[in-house]
Design a protein around this nucleic acid. Sequence first.
RNA 1: GGAGGCAUAGCUCAGUCGGUAGAGCACUCGCUUCACAUGCGAGGGGUCACAGGUUCGAGUCCUGUUGUCUCCACCA
Length: 878
Amino acid sequence: MREPLSKTYAPREFEERIYSSWCEGGYFAPSGDRRAPAYTIVIPPPNITGQLHMGHALDNTLQDILIRYKRMQGYDTLWVPGTDHASIATEAKIVEAMRKEGLTKEAVGREEFLRRAWAWKDKYAGRIVEQLKKMGASCDWSRERFTLDEGCSRAVREVFVRLYDKGLIYRGERIINWCPKCLTSLSDAEVEYQDQAGHFWHIRYPLTDGSGSIELATTRPETLLGDTAVAVNPGDERYRHLVGKTLRLPLVGREIPVIADEYVEADFGTGAVKITPAHDPNDFEVGQRHGLPIENVMTPDAKITDDYPAYAGMDRYAARKAIVADLEAGGYLARVENYTHSVGTCYRCGTTVEPRVSLQWFVKMAPLAAPAIEAVRGGEVRFVPERFEKNYLRWMENIRDWCISRQLWWGHRIPAFYCDECGKTVITKDDAALCPACGKPMRQDPDTLDTWFSSALWPFSTLGWPDDTDDLRRYYPTSSLVTGYDIITFWVSRMIFSGLAYTGKAPFDTVVIHGLVRDAQGRKMSKSLGNGIDPLEIIDKYGADALRFALASGNSPGNDMRFSDEKIEAARNFANKLWNAARFALLYLPEDDDTPPALPDAARLAPEDKWLLAHYRRTVAAVRDNLDRYEIGIALSEIYDFVWDIFCDWYVELSKSRLADAGSDGAAVARATLTWVLTGILKLLHPYMPFITEEIYQSLPHDAPSIMIARYPAPQDVEDFGTEATDFDRVIRAIGAVRARRAEMNVPPSRRANVYLKTAYPASFAGAEPFFVKLAGAASLSIVDAYDAKDAVSIITDAATLYIPLSDMVDPAKERARLEGELKKVREGIARTEAKLSNEGFVSKAPAAVVEAERERLAKMKATEAGLVASIETIAQA
RNA sequence: GGAGGCAUAGCUCAGUCGGUAGAGCACUCGCUUCACAUGCGAGGGGUCACAGGUUCGAGUCCUGUUGUCUCCACCA
């Protein structure tokens, strides 16, 4: 059944309709064909914090291109969609929303808070799904998942219990990164370091024996309250005699020891370091080594505790100011330097992290990291581009234990149960109601897990793990994972070690990395800059296909890209071009013709048909080759060039004369070739621009119910015509040369010229007259053995010399000068090539094919030279 | 402090196996050519950041320099 194609390209009129037709057709689900190999992608689940941005648009466009390409190749494809609960980010949003209502988490309580969170999830997950559909994403929606749904939660508990039983999960009092705004711990990966201008305060700590003082330097004087020692390097002569003595902590009066530890570098600062085990990770370790007390001086929201009445309730920065003032007043402050140093901040809210000692759950990483390193080293998992392997390996090799507990409510609650009666701890997949030891009711750990703990299981939890499901057996391990380089550490690395640890297999074979989408000025898109571009607005204005085209074109793996109005307009223009090419083809197709296009026998094809088909064959091969290597941008530019330059600018024009002769065999052949190649173009392009290609496909006679499930073109679909096909290039070049000359000589298009053509390849030009008439402003074309060029303009190409009577053109003197200029250029080329060929090193060492190509080039240039010389001679005689 | 990316036309970027540098946009000239002015035809525009090296031959491979961006790292 053919549908009419509207006159203008208006994507809004058909994109939604087409998406619904795909849903109704059930094309998004895997084919289930067991003879075909499976190809699986799991979506990097977008956070339910808000709506999709350009980065998501890029990520999902690339995934959809791959999955559609594989689907059309006959793979049993599955793209699993879903969303991430994003515990810390979502919780922050909900807390913020409640704050506007004058509410707090604590005020509403855990149950009500979670009710609100689920309502939030329903709203935003739904919105995200709608956006993905608008973009054309061919996900299997029947398999949509959520990191906090029942199945994923079961997987999380399973993993937690297994790791605990193996001794790979432990609970301990450690110093961790703490966000005083989000009021939770953070993993090392969740801290971003930024250089900040600050000060270096030099402070004197007096010795308790009154024999003087030690001067030390700090960037954080407020932590002085928690100092429990001062450390020096054991080899530092300046301080050796002081080790073992004690100091009087300024403002506090506490007596603290001077200790020696290798951690201290003698030549940095004053060579003496104040040790605050509760508020600095290094100091914590020093403290552990020396058995120092841990003196916590701050509340969770980074205010000084009531233990220090002079500063109690002040936040850390106010306290810093007050303490510096007091130090100065007390004569302890030696001097202040300006100092820029690196400060850790929360990756979600940007607040400066406060290291804090607290009781948290950790994953012991070393045993898990080892196989994950091996999987990448050994090639079981491959990164595209390869360089990101290094990134991954470096991180994995230096990994430290992973702090997985969060003081948040929105997330997977830690399956640890405590008996307050007898102190027993139970880790269980099932909720433990009563203590197995004393029978008393148990209390579940109030904390939740790091959101990345559940994302790490995504490639298999979404397929049914821990159960041995059909999906898991069929579609796991998955094939390609497409994601940005910014979450390799957060997510990719954790999926790899998780997959290996729990399923025994790496979760995917290829990690396809893309860059960031930046604005037209190259800046990162961000809320604070307000330079974000909403994909939905672009779709509304230009269509989803144009958006997808703009994101895919020029995209090279791992590199950032810029998004600009120019780019999206170019994309829309291309869509419009394709649309109109289709309208042209339809002009010649009888409305009742429902026969799917087939290529006529080679014997019936005209030279220009073979020429087109040869280019098509080459293009198909190049597109497939590049797609197979994830060179999505290069593959697209191959299609673009073929569609615009070869198909539209040349072939459509070349076909017009035959098509006009309605009823002739030539018209039938041209029509069939045109339609067949157009259909091939639509299929080639479908993964990139699914809507427009389907809309046009449905307007043409077609065999598959949807282009989505049509077979992807292969080079062998068309015969290799060999040199026969390139013979037509001679005509193309001759036409181009005539056009160029006319433009150069400012000949008005209305001025038609009789063209005489002398050639060593008369067969190539046999039926060429209509093309010269149509495309080169010719009145006629005569093939001649000789032509008296005295009063003619000559146009020389390597295959022919064309003459146009001067009366049909203009100015002989100008013409002669031009010919001489051209002769000079050709002679330069000849000299260069001859030099190359007379270079023995080149002839003997370069590959034979390269040498041969040079010889051919030389022969062509010599032919051109001879033609030019002859023309200059004749014009000189005139 | 380590590691990596990038540097090519006015702008944004491609450039696969080392073989006379490409696209889009912008610019100039000419086009109411019956698919498309979201278009057609023709042009101008490049010391491929710099300096060495390898090679018959380098935008491409190697070394160094400069600029720029990013990642990692506990320097108080």
